[in-house]
Every structure is written in structure tokens, then in C-alpha cells.
Simulated scan of single mutants.
Amino acid sequence: MSEETLYRRLRAFRDTFREGFGSESEEVRWPEISQGQILMMMSSKARHQRVAHRLRTALEPQLAAGLALYVETDLEDPGLGILRVPDLAVVNADFEPTAADAMPPHDCHCIIEVVSRSNPANDYEGKLRDYPAMGIPHYLIVDPRDGTAVHYWAPTTRTGAPTYDNQQHYTFGDTVTVGDWKIDTSGLPRYDDEAPQ
């Protein structure tokens, strides 16, 4: 069975599963698909959303005409068998959705993920594998657990596996540069130790 055939079966099951169970659940978000598996994601908590909102507020006014900032929208590459739901995505405003009403990766300029306490490996491992494979030019991970951020750019496969050629590490308080955009992280809140995300 090809990667795309398996993906389409998982995609159909995901949509059926979501309609039958997840739409009434406040705890379950749209599942993601990667490496032939459906990945269940928990709904974002308030602290996670607060960080994402501040990032959106900082970034959106800087976008040139023709670009838009999407929040938690399906991003899929059926040929690679990948469907992700990024926290924030800078995309061409006039992109044509895929047949499954998702964003195609070739219209995406930047992905920003806010790390949750419950599953940090999803952002640092799974998505760090999938986003360069999809050709996403810039990937920014913002981690309120320890007040850090990492910007990855220039996707490549020259090492034999999809990765990014470059990375830059930041701490909250720094101004992060992503392409033509600058994000001041000094106002980003960190998670409280007492409240898991």
C-alpha cells in the first residue's frame, strides 16, 4: 500500500472519528497524521492560547499584502502522508485549499508552534521531521515551559533525512527574527509550575 493510499484511509477515518466523537469534546482537538499513524492531540489550555494570541498580535501587523495568518488549520501533504494542525501559519492569502479543505504546504511561509507541557516531543521531534519534509521555509518553536524559542529555516534533505540547515536559539526577552518579521518575546508569559498544560 502506498503512503498516499494509507494516508487517505487514515484521513477518512480521522474525519469520521471526529464527527462521531470529538466534535462534542472540549478535550480533543482535530487529530494529526504522521508516519502512518493518527496522533490524538489534546485541546489547548488557556495559558497555551494566551501565548499563541500574543504571537499572533505581534506578527499579523507585519505581514505584507497577500499574506495571512491562520490559526489551527489543517496543513496536509497527502503524498507524504502528513497532516498537521499548526498553532499559527503564515500563508498566501489567496491559497487554494486541497480537496480535503486543508492548506497545501507550498502556500505556507512559516509555522509557529507553542509547546505544550503534555507533549513537547510532538513539536521538537515529530513536527521538526515533518515540516522540513513538507518544504516549510521557516519553523519557530516557542516554549513557555522554560522561556525559550528556536527558529529553524532552510529545509534540506542533503543529510538523507528531512531537516533544516539553520537554527537560532532565543530566550524570552529576545527579539526573534523570522525572515522579514520580528517578534519581541519579552511580553510572552511562561507556564506556571503548578498548572500542567
Rank of each mutant, 00 (worst) to 15 (best):
W30N: 13
W30E: 15
W30D: 12
W30A: 08
P31G: 03
P31A: 09
P31C: 03
E32Q: 13
G36M: 09
I38V: 13
L39W: 01
M40N: 05
M40R: 08
S44I: 01
S44K: 09
A46L: 13
A46R: 15
R47G: 11
H48A: 07
Q49A: 12
Q49K: 10
Q49T: 08
R50Q: 13
A52R: 00
A52W: 01
H53D: 14
H53C: 08
R54G: 10
R56M: 14
R56L: 09
T57A: 15
P61F: 02
Q62T: 08
A64R: 15
A65K: 15
G66C: 10
G66F: 03
G66V: 03
L67N: 00
A68Y: 01
Y70D: 08
Y70V: 03
E72P: 09
T73W: 02
D74T: 08
L75I: 13
E76R: 10
E76S: 14
D77W: 03
D77K: 10
P78L: 10
G79C: 07
G79W: 01
L80T: 08
G81I: 00
L83T: 05
L83W: 03
L83F: 04
V85N: 09
V85L: 07
V85W: 02
D87C: 07
V90S: 03
N92G: 01
N92L: 02
N92E: 08
A93Y: 00
D94Q: 06
D94W: 00
D94I: 00
D94L: 07
F95D: 01
F95E: 01
E96A: 12
P97Y: 07
T98G: 12
T98R: 08
A99F: 05
A100Q: 14
D101A: 14
D101K: 09
D101R: 15
M103E: 05
M103K: 12
P104M: 14
P105N: 14
H106K: 11
H106Y: 10
H109V: 07
H109I: 02
H109Y: 05
C110N: 02
I111G: 02
I112M: 06
E113I: 07
E113Y: 00
V115P: 00
V115G: 04
R117T: 13
R117K: 12
S118I: 10
N119E: 11
A121Q: 15
A121R: 14
A121I: 06
A121C: 03
N122G: 12
D123I: 04
Y124G: 03
G126Q: 13
K127A: 03
L128G: 01
L128Q: 09
Y131A: 05
Y131G: 03
